[in-house]
Amino acid sequence: MNPNDRRYSKEHEWVLVDDAAAGKATAGITHYAQDQLGDVVFVELPKLGAAVKFMGKMGEIESVKSVSDLFSPVSGEVIEINERLLDHPEIANQDPFGEGWLIRVAMSDASEIDNLMTAEEYEAFTSGLS
Protein backbone atom coordinates (compact mmCIF):
# COMPACT_ATOMS: atom_id res chain seq x y z
CA MET A 1 0.00 0.00 0.00
CA ASN A 2 2.90 2.40 0.68
CA PRO A 3 4.72 2.95 -2.64
CA ASN A 4 8.32 1.71 -2.79
CA ASP A 5 9.57 4.69 -4.78
CA ARG A 6 9.73 7.05 -1.80
CA ARG A 7 10.80 7.45 1.82
CA TYR A 8 8.70 7.97 4.95
CA SER A 9 8.99 9.99 8.16
CA LYS A 10 7.86 9.02 11.65
CA GLU A 11 5.46 11.97 11.39
CA HIS A 12 3.73 10.20 8.48
CA GLU A 13 4.92 12.33 5.60
CA TRP A 14 6.43 10.88 2.43
CA VAL A 15 9.04 12.34 0.10
CA LEU A 16 9.67 11.32 -3.49
CA VAL A 17 12.79 12.47 -5.30
CA ASP A 18 11.31 13.02 -8.76
CA ASP A 19 14.27 14.87 -10.30
CA ALA A 20 17.46 13.61 -8.69
CA ALA A 21 19.72 15.54 -11.09
CA ALA A 22 18.10 18.85 -10.17
CA GLY A 23 17.67 17.86 -6.50
CA LYS A 24 13.90 18.25 -6.57
CA ALA A 25 11.43 16.26 -4.47
CA THR A 26 7.71 16.11 -3.77
CA ALA A 27 6.26 15.65 -0.27
CA GLY A 28 2.87 14.60 1.05
CA ILE A 29 1.09 12.75 3.85
CA THR A 30 0.65 8.99 3.97
CA HIS A 31 -2.46 6.89 3.65
CA TYR A 32 -2.11 6.05 7.33
CA ALA A 33 -2.09 9.76 8.19
CA GLN A 34 -5.22 10.58 6.21
CA ASP A 35 -6.98 7.56 7.68
CA GLN A 36 -6.15 8.63 11.23
CA LEU A 37 -7.26 12.21 10.54
CA GLY A 38 -10.56 11.41 8.87
CA ASP A 39 -12.19 13.83 6.42
CA VAL A 40 -9.67 16.61 5.76
CA VAL A 41 -11.31 20.04 5.51
CA PHE A 42 -8.41 22.50 5.66
CA VAL A 43 -4.75 22.48 4.68
CA GLU A 44 -2.27 25.27 5.36
CA LEU A 45 0.95 25.07 3.31
CA PRO A 46 4.13 27.18 3.33
CA LYS A 47 4.43 29.99 0.79
CA LEU A 48 6.27 29.63 -2.50
CA GLY A 49 9.93 30.38 -1.94
CA ALA A 50 9.75 29.65 1.79
CA ALA A 51 12.57 27.72 3.38
CA VAL A 52 11.58 24.45 4.99
CA LYS A 53 13.72 22.44 7.39
CA PHE A 54 14.11 18.70 7.75
CA MET A 55 11.31 17.68 10.14
CA GLY A 56 10.49 21.31 10.82
CA LYS A 57 6.86 22.47 10.99
CA MET A 58 5.70 23.59 7.55
CA GLY A 59 1.94 23.84 7.89
CA GLU A 60 -1.23 22.40 9.37
CA ILE A 61 -3.87 19.94 8.35
CA GLU A 62 -7.35 19.85 9.86
CA SER A 63 -10.07 17.28 9.74
CA VAL A 64 -13.57 17.83 11.08
CA LYS A 65 -12.57 16.65 14.54
CA SER A 66 -8.86 17.29 14.82
CA VAL A 67 -5.86 19.32 13.75
CA SER A 68 -2.24 18.27 13.20
CA ASP A 69 1.02 19.92 12.27
CA LEU A 70 2.67 19.12 8.95
CA PHE A 71 6.43 18.52 8.99
CA SER A 72 8.73 18.78 6.01
CA PRO A 73 10.57 15.53 5.30
CA VAL A 74 13.43 17.46 3.62
CA SER A 75 15.21 20.81 3.89
CA GLY A 76 15.19 23.29 1.03
CA GLU A 77 13.15 25.88 -0.79
CA VAL A 78 9.48 25.45 -1.64
CA ILE A 79 9.23 25.65 -5.44
CA GLU A 80 5.65 24.53 -5.88
CA ILE A 81 2.60 24.06 -3.67
CA ASN A 82 -0.48 22.01 -4.43
CA GLU A 83 -2.94 24.88 -5.02
CA ARG A 84 -5.71 22.48 -5.92
CA LEU A 85 -5.46 20.84 -2.51
CA LEU A 86 -6.16 24.17 -0.78
CA ASP A 87 -9.57 24.37 -2.47
CA HIS A 88 -10.21 20.62 -2.46
CA PRO A 89 -8.69 19.26 0.75
CA GLU A 90 -10.64 16.01 0.31
CA ILE A 91 -8.01 15.01 -2.28
CA ALA A 92 -5.67 14.38 0.67
CA ASN A 93 -8.03 11.58 1.70
CA GLN A 94 -8.75 10.29 -1.77
CA ASP A 95 -5.22 10.15 -3.17
CA PRO A 96 -2.58 10.92 -0.51
CA PHE A 97 0.30 9.43 -2.51
CA GLY A 98 -0.67 11.10 -5.80
CA GLU A 99 -2.98 14.06 -6.43
CA GLY A 100 -2.96 14.86 -2.72
CA TRP A 101 0.72 15.87 -2.62
CA LEU A 102 1.56 18.96 -0.55
CA ILE A 103 4.71 20.72 -1.78
CA ARG A 104 7.70 20.42 -4.13
CA VAL A 105 11.07 21.31 -2.71
CA ALA A 106 14.46 22.18 -4.19
CA MET A 107 16.47 20.19 -1.69
CA SER A 108 19.45 21.73 0.04
CA ASP A 109 20.69 18.38 1.37
CA ALA A 110 19.44 15.31 -0.47
CA SER A 111 21.33 13.02 1.93
CA GLU A 112 18.72 13.78 4.64
CA ILE A 113 16.46 11.31 2.91
CA ASP A 114 18.71 8.48 4.05
CA ASN A 115 17.46 9.16 7.58
CA LEU A 116 13.91 8.34 6.54
CA MET A 117 12.20 4.96 6.44
CA THR A 118 11.72 2.73 3.42
CA ALA A 119 8.18 1.62 2.60
CA GLU A 120 8.86 -1.68 4.33
CA GLU A 121 10.23 -0.01 7.44
CA TYR A 122 7.30 2.42 7.50
CA GLU A 123 4.86 -0.46 7.17
CA ALA A 124 6.44 -2.11 10.22
CA PHE A 125 6.43 1.24 12.05
CA THR A 126 2.71 1.88 11.50
CA SER A 127 1.68 -1.68 12.27
CA GLY A 128 3.23 -1.15 15.72
CA LEU A 129 1.00 1.89 16.32
CA SER A 130 -2.52 1.71 17.62
Binding site: E11, H12, Q36, L37, G38, S66, V67, S68, D69, S130
Partner: peptide, 13 residues
Amino acid sequence: GLELSSNPRFRQP
Protein backbone atom coordinates in the same frame (compact mmCIF):
# COMPACT_ATOMS: atom_id res chain seq x y z
CA GLY B 1 -13.21 12.77 23.14
CA LEU B 2 -14.18 12.82 19.49
CA GLU B 3 -10.94 12.66 17.61
CA LEU B 4 -10.69 9.60 15.44
CA SER B 5 -7.15 8.69 16.18
CA SER B 6 -5.73 7.35 19.41
CA ASN B 7 -2.30 8.30 18.07
CA PRO B 8 -1.16 11.55 19.76
CA ARG B 9 0.31 12.65 16.41
CA PHE B 10 -3.20 13.20 15.11
CA ARG B 11 -4.79 14.73 18.16
CA GLN B 12 -5.14 18.38 19.17
CA PRO B 13 -1.85 20.24 19.60
